[in-house]
Design a binder for these strands. Structure first.
Lengths: 249, 249
DNA sequence: ATGGCCGTTGCAGAGAATGCAACGAGCTGG
DNA sequence: CCAGCTCGTTGCATTCTCTGCAACGGCCAT
């Protein structure tokens, strides 16, 4: 739409491949050297491009700073909320959104079930970290030594007979979750409640949040709940795409 | 230098503060809405800007992809080399550059001492990981659980009486190095050779490489070598700045 | 010395970006 | 239910900016 800007921006992916000098840039843009020079200068003033000691150009620090700042100001919750509501409208059950922060997993959003029987949970409250589906998803994405370190520090309260009893079992469960890309909690926290969850990933593939659907046995059996998994995963993926700014150009 | 590009690029830091709609962008750029629209469209085509479901604009994923690609294609060695040579010209001793990769520390560049007595080392060869100054610097930057995991897996050969004997001592040494921002190896590998080293950091502050200066006792004492520390650190910092694309705009 | 290479600058012409005005969609309040 | 507002969008004529050219100067190697 804007030729000048279009050309200038075309320089960025070009430089991402590696440093280049003025001639190379001009050639690949198919413009006169003087034109390329002026474009590069403008990019330089904005810090998007850096001139190294051998006079060649490469991408500048500002780019990293921008990317970082953008990530910090990104609010998963804001982006996820409409998707969570939509899912809730489709399937009716309670939907949760959670993040990992300083050795805790916290609910940061919740859409109440439309069935009369509801489950107890509160936004901002720490999650039962050893059994909840969202906790498994968030912890499963940590590096191996970190997973071990966290797992060994935790307590393993036996909320029910199906609660995860110790660090070894927990690590094994995390490995499974990591592998399959989704998680469950079948009566591990409260005997009569089942959950299924899926991860939400940022642009770099790291898990930034997790969502889950919870329902009591009296409404749907665990098996029935599992049939909803594709919908849950689709929702999580949609949020991931929007969160990471899906624009394949 | 180029008004159009200048305006377009001014949108990026603006959006980094948070999502904004067309009117806000136009106002802050002090241009007509139609102009802002066309600029945003161009940025959008390049994926630098993303339009969320409420029509507002925010920074796009391409920005992250670019930053990432740029980092991957960055060659520390290429950038560091002239600095290493310069340092060698000033002080004459052997200068090394090393990186950490899959549980090993590897020399990736070396500038030979200008004194007749030289030390043995080879580019591409793994470093004595428990004693070398560069190894300490690189490992000290890992996360605490990772440091522990690595330290426990290592062997601790007693090259000399001053070699680090076990994991506990090594972890303690790493803590010191992490704190002070530089490292030494005083006869820990070969009785008669001392080293001092400093870290090279990327834009995010993480240590991407380490450099060191080595000299045998017969040329300079350990004390004399330590007086060179400021120069070494200055060189390392200069490389860090260039590597991370120092351009404060 | 000298020729070639690369980055840089001034200039005039050409083409592209700009602002305007008008349209349409969506929302709010009367 | 309609009137009136806001906000995004489009076509167009004008103007201003960007473009390519040619010439200069520094640097390196021959």
């Amino acid at each position: 739409m804007s030729q000048t800007v279009d050309r200038a921006l075309s320089i960025l992916p070009l430089l991402a491949e590696g440093p280049a000098d003025l001639g190379q840039v001009a050639e690949r843009l198919d413009v006169h050297k003087s034109t390329a020079l002026r474009l590069l200068r403008t990019l330089h003033e904005h810090g998007l491009v850096y001139r190294q000691s051998d006079q060649r150009y490469r991408l500048g620090a500002r780019l990293f700073a921008l990317a970082q700042e953008a990530v910090e100001n990104l609010d998963v919750r804001e982006i996820a909320h409409p998707h969570l509501v939509e899912l809730n409208e489709q399937i009716g059950h309670t939907v949760h959104l959670a993040v990992y922060e300083e050795n805790e997993v916290l609910y940061i959003d919740k859409v109440e079930s439309r069935y009369p029987v509801r489950m107890y949970s509160r936004i901002g409250k720490p999650v039962a970290i050893t059994v909840a589906a969202v906790a498994k998803l968030l912890l499963a994405d940590l590096s191996e030594p970190e997973r071990r370190a966290v797992a060994e520090k935790l307590d393993y309260p036996m909320y029910t007979a199906r609660s995860i009893p110790n660090a070894a079992a927990f690590l094994k469960e995390l490995a499974v979750v990591r592998e399959q890309g989704w998680a469950t909690d079948l009566g591990g926290h409260e005997e009569s409640i089942n959950c299924i969850g899926a991860p939400i990933r940022g642009a770099d593939g790291k898990v930034v949040a997790a969502m889950s659907v919870s329902a009591p046995n009296v409404v749907v059996t665990a098996e029935e709940l599992l049939t909803l998994l594709p919908q849950v995963r689709r929702t999580a993926d949609a949020i991931s795409r929007e969160y990471s700014g899906h624009t394949p150009a």
